[in-house]
Amino acid sequence: MLELEHGFRVVDCHAHLDHNEMAVTTYGRDTGPDELERECHQAGIVRAAISPSPHTEAKGYLRANNAVARLSVDRPFLAFARLNGALDATGGPVATVRNMRATRANYHTRPGDIEQYAYDNRFHGFVLDPALDGLPDEEVVAELAVVDLPVVVDCREEFPPSAAERALLGEGFPVILSGFGGYPMDRNRMVDSLALLDSYDRLYLDTWAVRSRELLERGLLEYPDRILFGSGTPVVHPNVAIMEILTLDVSEDAMNRVFNKNPMRVIPGFAPQ
């Protein structure tokens, strides 16, 4: 695909990377680190935050996280560690009973893992998909507050923004709700996420797969400092994700904020070297 010419410095706070050939073969992905770097360059993305793709069949993400950190060396990537937990995040009485009996298995994220991930800027943040991978317990959440790195949270039907508010918001660390807290055309959850910005100073939303021009423009106009660009590559090609922003009816300053200023403030590793 031809390189985009847009004149903005663009950083991407939401990208995934399959860490080895077996993962590509098993899960049907076709984007390795070299291709991802090439696609980002074509789109004009100077740096991207990457984390392992979610795999519900896997028992933990330690090896995948370490591989992503290794593959980020000498590439324009910032590694984010994917976390899991023993708690059922879906809510309701059944989940409550399960969580009363839940114990951390050896493949679940532990407080010491958070400390090691954060050591010496090896990882620049974390990713949580509680509906798929479970929710970390209170000790892990407390350690997330200690290291104070951003946490990207995927909200699904089983774990909407209201559940993220109960479990994660206001705990002392910045939270980025992926895709405005919803999925393409899931307007209600996206509107709920926008409303939460009024109550939580360290809450942010990324633009992954937000197909509604009206919601994107509203977010950029009403909350100019709280919206971050995230492509969601390889699910969405970065060229497509950038064009969705470039075609909005907003000012050049608003675009510069979402592409560069806002992500750089939340994730310092995005600052120019």
Rank of each mutant, 00 (worst) to 15 (best):
G134N: 08
L128N: 05
A89V: 02
M100F: 10
E139W: 06
I114F: 01
R110E: 05
N84A: 03
G125Q: 02
V97M: 14
A102Y: 05
G125P: 01
A118D: 05
L78M: 06
R98N: 14
N66I: 10
A105M: 12
R104C: 10
N65M: 09
A105S: 14
G91P: 12
A86C: 15
A142F: 07
A102T: 03
A89R: 06
L87F: 05
A131T: 02
P130S: 00
V73K: 12
L78R: 01
E143I: 04
H124Q: 11
D113L: 02
F77I: 05
A145Y: 04
V127N: 09
D88L: 08
Y117N: 03
V140A: 00
V97E: 15
T96P: 04
N99T: 04
R110A: 10
E138D: 14
G85D: 08
Q116W: 14
A69C: 07
A89K: 08
L144M: 15
E115W: 03
V68K: 04
R104P: 00
L78N: 04
P93Y: 13
R122V: 02
V73F: 02
P130M: 00
R110I: 01
F126M: 07
P76A: 08
T96V: 12
L83F: 06
D88S: 11
Y119M: 13
D137C: 02
G125L: 02
D137E: 08
D74F: 08
G92S: 08
N66D: 15
A131N: 06
T109P: 00
T90P: 09
P93E: 15
H108E: 10
L132R: 14
V127A: 08
F126V: 06
G92D: 08
P111L: 00
A142I: 06
N106Y: 12
G112E: 15
G92T: 05
Y119F: 13
L135M: 07
T109F: 00
V68M: 07
P111M: 00
F80Q: 07
L128F: 03
E143N: 08
R98G: 03
E138L: 11
A86W: 12
G112Q: 13
H124F: 05
P136E: 04
V140P: 00
M100T: 10
F77V: 06
D74T: 06
P93W: 15
A64Q: 14
E143H: 07
H124W: 10
V73S: 03
A69V: 05
F80P: 09
R82E: 11
T90I: 14
V68I: 15
A81Y: 09
T90V: 12
R98M: 12
D120R: 04
R104Q: 11
V68G: 04
T96F: 14
E115I: 08
D133P: 01
I114C: 04
V140M: 00
F80A: 07
D133T: 09
S72C: 12
